[in-house]
Design a binder for these strands. Structure first.
Lengths: 209, 209
DNA sequence: ACCTGAACACCGTTCAAGT
DNA sequence: ACCTGAACACCGTTCAAGT
């Protein structure tokens, strides 16, 4: 079934490299994400990728960028199935975030390692992270409009939400959330619990008489 | 785990390698954390480190472990200067966490990358992270005893606190918290703000008459 | 314009041999 | 017992030459 037409020109090498990199990352972790191996899998020479990416970092940045866009898509589709209650939406996002991390641990680790984000050498990547961040800002704003979320700069509140999501996803991947993540609905439980805390706080409120 | 005090090239190569690794990491980032370069800086051959560490990962795990112990010490000393109010303590921890991350960005990135924690090949490292986690559990428990923190499994609540700290530290390092971190007290401001949210929640509470 | 082949510098790791 | 020197396999990157 598999033909091996090996034209001198690949045709879509750039996308093929991104795809192969994504696969290698998922299969064998970050150490497999090296240019020679990616080139090998695609069936081109080790030098070929340099026609499409400045260096290894640039390929990784593009792969991570793709990761952020995928995450954004997942979140958007989860939000469409949630009610317009702020808490419900927070919950949907948290569940999506943690599941995405669990399903793509190596990709998310690469996304969160941030080595590339630091240098603003990759504007497209920066754009992709902003797209996700913007979804949080919108949730907060809608919640404020409906009187469900406290007043305050939506971007500041969104940053705190982002921090929380970032943290629970990371700790879940690293298996630091056990035993709360065990069992069939464990991952959902920790997401729900975290959002409940974020929503209501850990401080004990006075029961006024 | 103290050994003979002898920071000379001959007798204490193990500690010399850890120290050099810490320095290289701080100076030049993760890419500088390679065995040959560490060996070079200490003034031994490239093969010498293998007498003290199984491989490169083992050296990194030890360096990261040292990072967790340093962080634990910082937190402990901050807690001693805080009052016995739960909120005050949460705040002290958050400030310490974020400052530590800002002062040691590469070390913290390595600590959070978690590639090593996943494999429980490094029990000492696991131990070091537990030491930090335990400090959070204690804060939560004290807060509950004083009626300042809501009821619930202290370990679960501590995990949520940990997630929050993890997230704000990461986003601060990656400069995703701007513009809230700008200015002289910016870093403290974002820590305080985050803890206020964690304590009181983002949900709008009804003002009962 | 896009890709190959060979080359260079460098790293992780091993091992026989030195002290 | 601890360290050196040489060696092997492999990776990032470059560049002249091929299609």
């Amino acid at each position: 079934m598999r033909e091996k037409p090996k034209p001198y020109h690949h045709g879509d090498l750039r996308n093929a490299l991104i795809q192969a990199g994504l696969e290698l990352l998922a299969e064998s972790g970050a150490s497999a994400l090296d240019l020679r191996q990616v080139a090998r899998r695609v069936g081109v020479s080790s030098a070929a990728p340099y026609r499409h990416f400045a260096d290894r970092q640039a390929l990784i940045a593009t792969i991570v960028e793709e990761g952020y866009y995928r995450l954004a898509r997942h979140i958007q589709s989860a939000l469409q199935q949630a009610s317009d209650e702020a808490f419900d939406q927070l919950n949907a996002v948290a569940r999506t975030y943690v599941h995405f991390a669990q399903d793509n641990p190596w990709l998310v680790r690469e996304m969160f390692s941030g080595l590339t984000i630091e240098h603003e050498t990759y504007p497209d990547l920066h754009q992709a992270t902003k797209a996700v961040y913007h979804l949080y800002v919108e949730i907060i704003q809608r919640g404020q409009e409906h009187g469900q979320v406290i007043a305050g700069d939506p971007r500041a509140l969104a940053s705190v939400l982002w921090s929380m999501l970032h943290g629970i996803a990371t700790l879940t991947i690293e298996h630091q959330m056990r035993p709360y993540t065990d069992g069939p609905e464990g991952i959902d439980r920790i997401a729900l619990f975290s959002m409940q805390i974020l929503y209501d706080g850990v401080g004990r409120k006075e029961r006024d008489p």
